[in-house]
């Protein structure tokens, strides 16, 4: 699914990711934890092609293709999805029109027929119900005036509609109340399948009680310093990150 080999990347002029390697097979869920400023969001941004985030060396293979050669929209159409840590507000652009345009683009890429507006609206309404977002949010501007939690649920809604093959969730749990956390987790779990993989970036072990990962990685200082099973998250919760830095050093 995804094979990152010795990736180095910089933001503006600063080297952030250093020799990072990570392999994800279809159907796997990988959690990434790590201190603030470690480079977790940077990894998501580099993978999704955000301008300003430049891979300086290394390789990334996504479903057998060279990911770093693809444009932003091409990656998305190929099935890569990043749920933003800070979703963007775009007033004046209707959420429904935005969602339809993105689903149209993905379907076209897959050689599927375009959905009629009516069919799409029906699907969008049903899906928004599944993430407990009132259908009224579909008519508003993209994330316009949404609360923090509503924005996160809108990200999950997009993910469900786009049916990506690789979903990167960047702190989708932060800012969610307990009910919303369960809603989001249920949404993610309902999408788990043998063909779809997830990278779940989080600071809290709590999320991993709901979305049970196959692997947990610790990202610190721009590289993966430790990997393990889901128990690692509990250990981190108990001990913090300092012991790891000692171990690495």
């Amino acid at each position: 699914m995804l094979d990152i080999r010795n990736l180095n990347a910089r933001v503006e002029e600063t080297e952030i990711l250093r020799n990072l390697s990570l392999r994800i097979k279809p159907g796997e869920v990988h959690a990434i934890m790590g201190p603030n400023g470690a480079g977790k969001s940077t990894l998501g941004n580099v993978l999704s092609g955000r301008p300003g985030y430049e891979a300086t060396s290394g390789e990334v293979e996504f479903n057998g293709k060279n990911l770093l050669d693809m444009g932003i929209e091409e990656r998305a159409r190929e099935g890569l999805f990043l749920a933003f840590q800070y979703p963007v507000e775009i007033p004046g652009v209707s959420n429904m029109e935005f969602l339809k345009a993105s689903v149209d683009a993905r379907r076209k890429h897959l050689g599927l027929p375009e959905l009629s507006s009516f069919d799409f609206m029906k699907i969008a309404r049903e899906t928004s119900k599944r993430v407990s977002l009132d259908a009224a949010f579909l008519k508003r501007g993209v994330n316009e005036g949404f609360s923090g939690g509503e924005k996160k649920r809108n990200e999950i809604l997009q993910m469900m509609l786009l049916e990506p093959s690789l979903c990167i969730l960047d702190e989708t749990d932060s800012g969610l109340d307990i009910d919303a956390l369960q809603v989001v987790a249920a949404g993610v779990n309902s999408m788990r399948s043998a063909e779809r993989s997830f990278i779940v970036v989080t600071h809290y072990q709590r999320l991993l009680d709901f979305i049970i990962p196959d692997y947990v990685h610790v990202l610190a200082g721009g590289r993966i310093v430790k990997s393990g099973g889901k128990e690692l998250a509990l250990e981190l919760e108990a001990k913090g990150y300092a012991w790891l830095e000692d171990e690495v050093a």
Binding site: E73, A76, V88, I90, G92, V93, A101, S102, G141
Partner: peptide
Amino acid sequence: FYLRSRGLCEKQARTMLSFGFINE
């Protein structure tokens, strides 16, 4: 970037954003 990361091409994203600007 947000729009393109959802699969919209650059031109489509531009059109959508400028339309949004007056659509407010």
